[in-house]
Amino acid sequence: MQTVSLLNRFIYTWVILFILWYAFTTSLEPAELITGGFVSLVVASFSYKVFTGSGLKIFMPHKLFFVAQYIFIFILALIKSNFDVARRVLSPSLPINPGIVEFNTKLTNDFAKMVLANSITLTPGTLTIDIVENTFYIHWIDVKSDNPEIAHTEIANNFEKLLLKIFN
């Protein structure tokens, strides 16, 4: 992960915290906004070193386009996984064939790994159990193969391609 300047990271933290402040208060009164700006400035000055490593890059337009595409794919997968769960839960014989598989990821950014783990948990039939460095351990409700390559293409490929574009 290439490092970016401290000022860049500080401004990124400030902007994100201020957006959060606005979202929690949802009021446009000047007093609220000034207080929010001040409070997020103070909190950002304490926490910007642990808050982010990649800085403002993510606000560039073509990355925002990939973020929108990611969210779209993710919501489709979430709906599909719910119908999968419905089918398994409601059928009287409980069609499950569980096992735990592993695969390696190409992602290096910690935040990207967290997003990938959360997405895997919410896609059909898979649940992230642990991440050790670059290896994901996945509980798979319907195991197709214990080969890491096949598990990788079956479970994570779509998400990982987009995340590589967003975070690198």
């Binding site: 769960v85 839960v89 409980l94 499950i96 919410l122 039939g125 898979t126 649940l127 159990i129 509980h139």
Partner: peptide, 16 residues
């Protein structure tokens, strides 16, 4: 309620 062990319960519970 219906799934047989913790991991399968988590699978069904979390997604739905």
């Amino acid at each position: 309620y219906r799934m047989p062990d913790v991991y399968n319960r988590l699978q069904a519970g979390t997604k739905a």
